[in-house]
Amino acid sequence: MHTVEHDVDRPDSDVVAAFEDVPSTIVSDVTGNIGLTMDSGVRPAYDGVEMAGTAVTVNASPGDNLIIHKAITMTEPGDVLVIDCNGYTETGHIGELMCTSCQANGLAGIIIDGAYRDSREIAEMEFPVYGRGVNPQGPLKQDPGSINVTVACGGVSVDPGDIVIGDDDGVAVIPPEGAEDVLERSRAKLDSEDSVREEVLEGEYLYELNGYDELFDNLTIVGPEDSIQ
């Protein structure tokens, strides 16, 4: 069954824009590493990428991009296309012309759990693209799919309207209902790291500043003499 849902409940644009200055690592830290960051196989198309936007989700048949073309026409400026191709990397589902169209219409980026092509051109245009691989093989245009349904991308469940941020380290997904709390904790974490950085520059060790020494002292240390012979 294929579903095309036109309405997306988008979060406040000011909240989305505020996440532009929040690294994906900080989101992971303040959310307790509970699976809001995509797996390491989803990588940016170039170095220095920065992205923050609202998810428009696509479930596409592996090897086919007809539904992706349709989804592009349904986006608004500031959206990020999050495309589930079931990790298929034997076809380049999107390329430079599609990315040019997205950029011209104000999209914030594309994330595809699958492959893309025209990697050099995409890098040169500096349009944020994340994918699982690169393949020159062109896609078919014969299978429908679904737009704005829950998808799995990079091992993370993504709903339309989720806030998506990306940088060189990877991609993080923030559900809108808890976004302001995540943003507040992220800012506090960044301020804390600024203070800690000053102490580290003075020669202090994170091992002691963060209390890791106490954790270590509570461990049961096993030496060679304790090994099973």
Rank of each mutant, 00 (worst) to 15 (best):
T220D: 03
E76M: 13
E184C: 07
C102A: 11
L81F: 09
Q142E: 09
S24G: 15
P128G: 12
G133H: 07
T31W: 01
E214G: 01
S28Y: 05
V129Q: 03
V22K: 02
D118R: 07
E193V: 07
R187W: 11
M1E: 07
G32D: 10
D159S: 14
R10K: 08
D168P: 10
V82L: 06
G35E: 09
L219Q: 14
P23M: 07
G95N: 03
E180F: 00
E90L: 10
Y207M: 10
P224Q: 13
D191F: 09
V129K: 06
A18I: 05
L66M: 13
G114S: 11
I165W: 10
I72A: 05
I67E: 07
S13W: 08
S119D: 09
P224G: 14
E202R: 15
A60C: 00
G95S: 02
D113C: 09
G41C: 06
D167M: 02
P139N: 01
D191S: 11
L190H: 09
N86I: 01
D168R: 10
V80K: 08
V82A: 10
N105G: 03
V80W: 04
G109N: 03
I122E: 13
I110C: 09
L215C: 13
Y130D: 04
Q103P: 00
I112G: 11
R187K: 15
L201W: 01
L215V: 15
N59A: 14
D21V: 12
E204D: 13
A71C: 09
G114E: 10
A18D: 12
E124V: 10
N105S: 10
S119W: 00
G48Y: 13
V82H: 03
G211F: 00
D12K: 14
M125I: 12
D113L: 08
N59M: 13
D14R: 12
A172S: 15
M1K: 02
E177W: 00
C99N: 05
V42I: 15
D169L: 13
P139M: 04
C102Q: 03
I94W: 00
E208M: 07
V156I: 01
S13G: 05
V80L: 09
S192Q: 01
G223Q: 01
G48H: 10
R185C: 00
A115P: 07
V16G: 04
Y205A: 15
P160G: 06
S192H: 06
F19V: 12
S101I: 11
Y46N: 01
D159M: 13
Y46D: 06
R10N: 01
V156S: 11
N148D: 11
G166M: 05
R10C: 01
R117P: 08
H6Q: 02
D168N: 14
E199V: 04
I163R: 04
M1V: 05
S13I: 12
S119I: 05
V149R: 02
T89C: 15
E177I: 02
R197S: 08
G109F: 04
A179K: 04
Q103R: 06
N210T: 04
H69Q: 12
Y116P: 12
S61I: 07
C99T: 08
E177P: 01
S24N: 12
V49M: 10
R185S: 05
C99V: 08
V151D: 03
D159Y: 11
D169C: 13
I111Y: 01
D9T: 13
D181S: 14
L66K: 14
C85S: 08
